[in-house]
Design a protein around this nucleic acid. Structure first.
Lengths: 119, 119
DNA sequence: CTAACGTATGAATATATATTCATTCGTTTG
DNA sequence: CAAACGAATGAATATATATTCATACGTTAG
């Protein structure tokens, strides 16, 4: 805490970089939403679910089977993905069939793949 | 666990969706790296750091001052960003000055911003 | 109506993560 | 050389998160 005050006084850059940086800061609400969105994508299980649902719709138990995980774990993650509008669902008898809801996210996934491959 | 086996036998879709989905699965290493990358972006502090460093280079204490956080917290996050090659640094006297190292990440950030704004 | 099935959910647990505190390291300056 | 400063780091703490377990819910089939 003290450091910052000391530093602000002592760092004598040509321009007041801190001042510039502060004024260019993203609104906190944007930062928060950005971070939340990336956090959703930052989990292997959710990545697998989203990827499995590209060009396909699958029920919960098929997703569980595909990923080799328990039904409950998948269901919990689907709830999360649902709440962020990344997947949608329709009911068919006892089954609940999920599919992708957001095309943008696919773009982000692809861009991410590009990134990890080209480097 | 049992569920999956039961389900595989009982779900009689036209095609074997699970089989298709399984064969289309991303290699686990890719999934892992993708998730790691997004996880890095999934934190407000790191988003702020990366955004503050766009078009600017800043020393640790300036970042701390800009974000209104302690020097140690910033330093820990910078270590993380460094290890994923998202920021680079140069030393100048006692200061360590950080800047962005990866242009792709900016693309992802922008795409993320687009997404949260257009919806 | 009852049993069986697919799904959802709450509680519990294990694990990961961010921040703070205290300290150390390296450089500079008096 | 000693003091001061910026930065890095390890330990500790608080918090978030993913998965499992047990159970409840809704639908369908017998």
């Amino acid at each position: 805490m003290e450091d910052r005050i000391v530093c602000e006084k002592n760092c004598n850059h040509d321009e007041n970089l801190v001042c510039l940086a502060k004024s260019a800061m993203l609104p906190d609400s944007d930062v928060q939403r950005l971070a939340e969105m990336f956090k959703i994508l930052g989990d292997p299980t959710r990545i697998k679910i989203l990827h499995s649902l590209t060009g396909r719709e699958l029920c919960v138990c098929d997703l569980a089977e595909t990923l080799g995980m328990g039904q409950s774990a998948i269901s919990h993650q689907l709830r999360m993905l649902k709440s962020y509008r990344l997947v949608k669902y329709r009911k068919e008898g006892k089954e609940v069939i999920y599919s992708l809801d957001d095309a943008h996210i696919l773009g982000l996934l692809c861009m991410g793949l590009d990134h990890i491959n080209h480097q």
